[in-house]
């Protein structure tokens, strides 16, 4: 939802914006040697961006260095069952005698790779459909819009549940495909709207007059200016992927032998971790999903603020006014 709204605001660049203020912003940018540097600096000044990026980096680093953090195998069932956290087992053990910490760090690896691949795939599909629909227009657009809306409205999860039950083996590949198939529509809609708004901008018109090909116009003239929107869309898709993936695995519809946040929760729930009070078993994976998702959401929020001056500068102005 939030991504869509960004589009409207982006498309709504006020034609009558005070020339004085426009002057200000161009001047300020012009004064800095490198505009990228300015963006980077503003990024680090934004609290939400910093917290969000740190959370995401933390999980990615965790996934990469997983084998360095523990020498215990996530699948080994050789420990005393249901041990509370201790020096030997920082997050305790499961009722099957597995080390929760080892499961958690290796699970991070598995969950993140599926989420990132599925999220990226979703974004690519959204982009393709959105660009073609928005740029080509006409009947093609009508049809693609119809398909997009149908996919949007058909509830993803029940479909995914049935798909996962019906399809033979729910490995990671099936998981990724199912997420992409049910998740692309929202992004396509958002990107289409933005393309529609940009299609008639003077510089795109002039590229068209200059005889640039559609491919080149879309990918060289339009895309670079939609970077923030595509990035926001990627973040949103990854959130969707993590939630869907973990949701399915939690329901036992993933590969139960695999170790990831979702199956950890599935086993914790099935083995009665709640009733036996083994909080160290079901809290870490859930909290991780929440924190990873929150990191993405914060970053998304920050990208919104950084790229949309209307959302950004006001609060600072108000603060000044209150002071004076």
């Amino acid at each position: 939802m939030q991504t869509e709204l960004t589009v409207q605001e982006g498309a709504n660049v006020q034609p009558e914006a005070s020339p004085v203020l426009t002057n200000v912003s161009t001047r300020t940018q012009g004064r800095r040697k490198n505009p990228l540097l300015g963006t980077v600096r503003r990024f680090f000044q934004n609290k939400k961006a910093v917290v969000g990026a740190s959370l995401i980096t933390l999980f990615i680093v965790l996934a990469i260095i997983a084998p360095l953090l523990t020498h215990l195998s996530p699948n080994a069932t050789s420990f005393l069952p249901l041990q509370a956290p201790s020096g030997a087992h920082p997050l305790g053990t499961t009722s099957l005698g597995q080390d929760v910490f080892s499961q958690f760090v290796f699970g991070t690896r598995e969950t993140l790779s599926v989420a990132i691949i599925a999220g990226a795939g979703t974004t690519v599909l959204s982009m393709l459909v959105g660009m073609v629909s928005g740029y080509v227009g006409g009947l093609m657009d009508e049809v693609l819009q119809l398909v997009t809306n149908v996919f949007l409205i058909i509830p993803g999860l029940p479909l995914v549940i049935v798909l996962a039950a019906v399809l033979p083996k729910s490995g990671d590949f099936t998981m990724v495909m199912v997420i992409i198939l049910t998740g692309w529509a929202w992004g396509a809609r958002v990107l289409r709207a933005q393309i529609m708004a940009m299609r008639s901008l003077p510089y795109v018109e002039s590229a068209k007059m200059g005889g640039e090909s559609m491919f080149s116009i879309v990918f060289r003239e339009i895309m670079p200016n939609m970077f923030s929107l595509i990035f926001a869309n990627l973040l949103f898709s990854i959130i969707y992927a993590v939630l869907t993936e973990s949701g399915l695995q939690f329901l036992g519809l993933g590969d139960l032998k695999a170790v990831n946040w979702g199956t950890m929760l599935y086993w914790a729930d099935t083995e009665g971790a709640l009733l036996s009070g083994a909080w160290w078993w079901f809290v870490p994976p859930g909290l991780a999903i929440a924190l990873f998702g929150a990191g993405l959401a914060l970053l998304n929020y920050a990208v919104d603020e950084l790229t949309n001056p209307k959302l950004r500068s006001q609060s600072r102005r108000r603060r000044r006014l209150q002071r004076s």
Binding site: G247, G286, A290, G293
Partner: peptide, 18 residues
């Protein structure tokens, strides 16, 4: 907005469990 964005990132089922 910040608080509810964060809460919105929580998986429904896990929040339900907790």
């Amino acid at each position: 907005p910040t608080v509810f964005t964060l809460l919105g990132a929580f998986p429904y089922f896990w929040l339900a469990l907790v």
